[in-house]
């Protein structure tokens, strides 16, 4: 709701000047609708808080990321600082999350030795994505840190460079190119077809899909929520008669999508880390 309010405030800033008299006070602002505004891509390019137009431009999505990162670090720091052999309740929850990444993601993909090597990074990646995703449904933030493509790109690039680096380190540059572009056990002629596909896969599609899947899911989730709540606001406070009842439908839909977004936040973190583990494992495997 607050997000909607913020969104409404933002889109309405220009119009507010014109019909100022219509809204007065906090309730006037909260229960006011000047018509239905479908959410647009501009949702993801809110006005700058400072540094507008420069590379240091800082808007509320950046703020959401900073808050998510700060809370994540704070929670884990507090738990890690007082971690004991016999865990407290909070420590158990934290350990459960670490355990989930280890047993359900990384060790499902790699053998134990490699899992141990890449576990710290993959665990960090999982927790970071989860924290950035979940801000999408946290009241007053209402914007996933990962719904702006920059952060998914940085994380995907990190994974990309990591799997290329460990692959080259393990097989040598030639060896890595050979194992990834010319998979063994295929008739020679097939390479004409297979090698370009594999090249696209390894060098372009893997990192691109990692970043796009995450960002697109988070953007879509945000647009859906804004759509539902903007419609609710419009139906309740602007539409007349029976149309007001429609607001109930859109509100229930918004509620359902909020729950769904919580699920998607966890699922996308899982998918991103699972695929990262798979890509790293493919790079260090002996043979495909």
């Amino acid at each position: 709701m607050a997000n909607l309010a913020l969104g409404a405030a933002m889109t309405a800033t220009s119009e507010l000047a014109a019909d100022d008299g219509e809204s007065s006070g906090i309730f006037g602002w909260l229960f006011y609708s000047d018509g239905f505004h479908a959410p647009t891509v501009d949702e993801f390019f809110p006005p700058a808080l400072f540094g507008e137009g420069t590379i240091f431009e800082f808007n509320r999505i950046m703020l959401a990321r900073v808050i998510a990162a700060a809370v994540l670090i704070l929670i884990f720091w507090l738990v890690a600082r007082k971690a004991k052999v016999v865990p407290s309740r909070g420590q158990s929850v934290v350990e459960m999350m670490l355990d989930f990444v280890r047993t359900q993601i990384v060790e499902q993909v790699m053998d134990k030795e490699n899992a141990k090597r890449f576990l710290p990074f993959l665990t960090t990646l999982f927790l970071a994505i989860l924290a950035f995703n979940i801000t999408g449904v946290i009241p007053f933030i209402n914007m996933a840190g990962t719904s702006l493509i920059g952060l998914p790109i940085i994380m995907a690039l990190w994974v990309y460079i990591l799997y290329l680096a460990v692959g080259v380190k393990k097989h040598g540059l030639g060896g890595y190119l050979k194992t990834s572009l010319f998979p063994a056990g295929v008739p020679k002629g097939i390479y004409l077809l297979l090698t370009p596909i594999e090249f696209l896969q390894v060098f372009i599609l893997r990192p691109a899909t990692l970043a796009l899947r995450l960002a697109a899911n988070m953007m879509a989730g945000h647009l859906l929520l804004v759509l539902c709540f903007a419609a609710t606001q419009y139906f309740f406070f602007e539409a007349a008669g029976a149309m007001k009842a429609m607001g109930t439908v859109t509100f229930v839909a918004g509620f359902a999508f909020t729950l769904f977004e919580i699920f998607v936040a966890a699922l996308q973190a899982y998918v991103f880390v699972m695929l990262s583990a798979v890509y790293i494992n493919m790079a260090i495997e002996e043979e495909h």
Binding site: V41, D42, F44, F45, G51, T54, I55, F56, E57, F58, I61, M62, R65, V66, A69, L72, I73, F76, W77, A80, L98, P120, F121, T123, T124, L127, A128, G145, L148, I149, G150, L151, I153, I154, M155, W158, L212, A215, M219
Partner: peptide
């Protein structure tokens, strides 16, 4: 705006924030 092309400030802040998280987690918390 094209939502699939990152703005320069997006990349800058993303990098800073992600580096801080990775640093703190991998060298301290984990």
């Amino acid at each position: 705006h094209n939502p699939l092309i990152p703005a320069n400030y997006d990349i800058l802040w993303s990098t800073i924030i992600f580096l801080i998280i990775v640093g703190v987690f991998m060298w301290k918390i984990l």
